[in-house]
Design a protein around this nucleic acid. Sequence first.
DNA 1: TTGAAAGCGCTAACAA
DNA 2: TTGTTAGCGCTTTCAA
Lengths: 322, 322
Amino acid sequence: MITMTEIAKLTHVSQPTVSRVLNGSMTVAPEIRERVLACAREHDYQFNALAKGLQGSKTKLLGVLVTDISNGFFADLAKRIEAEARENGYSIILFNSDYNPRNEQEYLDVVRRYRVDGVLAVPIRETSGEWREYVKKLDVPVVTVTRRAKGLDSVYVDHAQAGAMVAAHLLERGFRRFLFIGKDYDGKYVGFRRSLVEIGYGPRTANVVYQDDVQMNRALEDWLGQSLERGAVFAGNDIYALRVLDALRRLEVSVPERVGVIGFDDTSMGRYLNPRLSSVSQPIARMAHEAVARLLDRIDRPGPREALDDPLSASLVIREST
Amino acid sequence: MITMTEIAKLTHVSQPTVSRVLNGSMTVAPEIRERVLACAREHDYQFNALAKGLQGSKTKLLGVLVTDISNGFFADLAKRIEAEARENGYSIILFNSDYNPRNEQEYLDVVRRYRVDGVLAVPIRETSGEWREYVKKLDVPVVTVTRRAKGLDSVYVDHAQAGAMVAAHLLERGFRRFLFIGKDYDGKYVGFRRSLVEIGYGPRTANVVYQDDVQMNRALEDWLGQSLERGAVFAGNDIYALRVLDALRRLEVSVPERVGVIGFDDTSMGRYLNPRLSSVSQPIARMAHEAVARLLDRIDRPGPREALDDPLSASLVIREST
DNA sequence: TTGAAAGCGCTAACAA
DNA sequence: TTGTTAGCGCTTTCAA
């Protein structure tokens, strides 16, 4: 691939002059400018991003770390982030932690090796000390997406509030018992449960951690057997919701007459499912936009500033399943 | 971040000696080796991948270009590719062309700028002259994944064969009219149609290019109205299939009694849908493995060799919808 | 307006 | 076994 030095030789100017032309400096004689540009075009010059990055620390590279790219929600998020980054002249190095902290840690090292200008991350355990420590060492700006990490720039949806919304909706629809599929420390469950406890439904709300289909189906069956009252399942994500729907169908439980189901993330399949799935929609495009904007701002204007902590709110998408 | 030169100063050796230690050369006195390693650990040294890449052309970076990462199939593929690459010490720069050739072209330039060691691509139009020309200019190895590009290393599933399999299956299940959702030059339709034409069903097989739900639903309705014979819809991917299922439900057409539906890619949701979706499964893990292996081989042992052209075969996953 | 020179962090000769 | 020197492709002074 042709270099500036070679173009310089071909056009009989110095290499820095070529640099000036190619970077759009206006202090070059039009005649030379033409000559250099023509030569660059002819040989299809592409600057060496490594050499450029070696110099001024601007690699125009962003590290993006997600937990699971094969989850439609994160795939969408990654897609939007990539688009936003591209619009601003940045490229993305993508990492998939697969919910494995070892991977996450390893990636953070890789990111440093490539001297990325900044990192967008969906941390596995955003509250852990290890995560904070690693971020400290990174010495490039980091923006946490989807999760809230205290003291760090975070662009996220207020899960507790979303959970409360779900509770209100389910109550209004006449459901009186509740099962959450997911971890009990999950923000959405925290908010969900809190609302329910407040009005005395604490004993009627439980949670199950998803391990595999067999285990979940059994848990579901147990829960169904405990009472004949109309209940609702709040799934931690749409993937779980889809499985719940399937299990319920197998058990010949009618949705939403006997049991309601609501998902989370509002992935695109939801509106085509049978029954159409109610879900909680996160403003993906907006999150991607704000996260990238914040990150680029940190990159462009370094120095300490207060951490961004602006929870966006989710919205309910009500369809047939509740 | 600390550099080799700085470590050299701190440990009172020359910088190349630090390089030797850190790269595991055995020709260094144990005492020095210890000292240097300790210092590196203490300061959490991470080599500068840019400087390294600027030198020996090995950036340990792979460009990955897909058409749509938000499609579950490609998300899975990307995930596997990333994992395979990582196992071999490579990182991934990810691009999403969004089926836009302009993006694709632009990305190929970016890839050159970062001097990636190789590229894995799902091209938009693998048969076009433009694509071949761009690949030529790339002067790094390129492996085409999912599609077949003549004369280039290609790891792909034989879509025509898959299409033929679908035809045989549908016929066996007693369907007698056929509608394919997708482009007529799509390999799977080519193979599908060919099989059908051979036995005289040419006039009974048609295709519709998906534009949006309204248009597709209308086309579907038209097709249904043309005959009362039992027919099947072959969707170009599972996403289309899901929509077809939804449209059919709206039209109160029973699946698979009156109309069969089969998808493509066998995305994970398929087994939970109502009805469970029959689909064509591509060996994603194997494709990722072979593609990365081939690419790394090209990188490690340059020089002309015959292009890899080894079509893998897809397999039918038959569930309730056919 | 242009060029010469230095340097980013590293590897790769080559000497000692 | 270690150090010296040069150079990868670029940007950035500093002179001219």
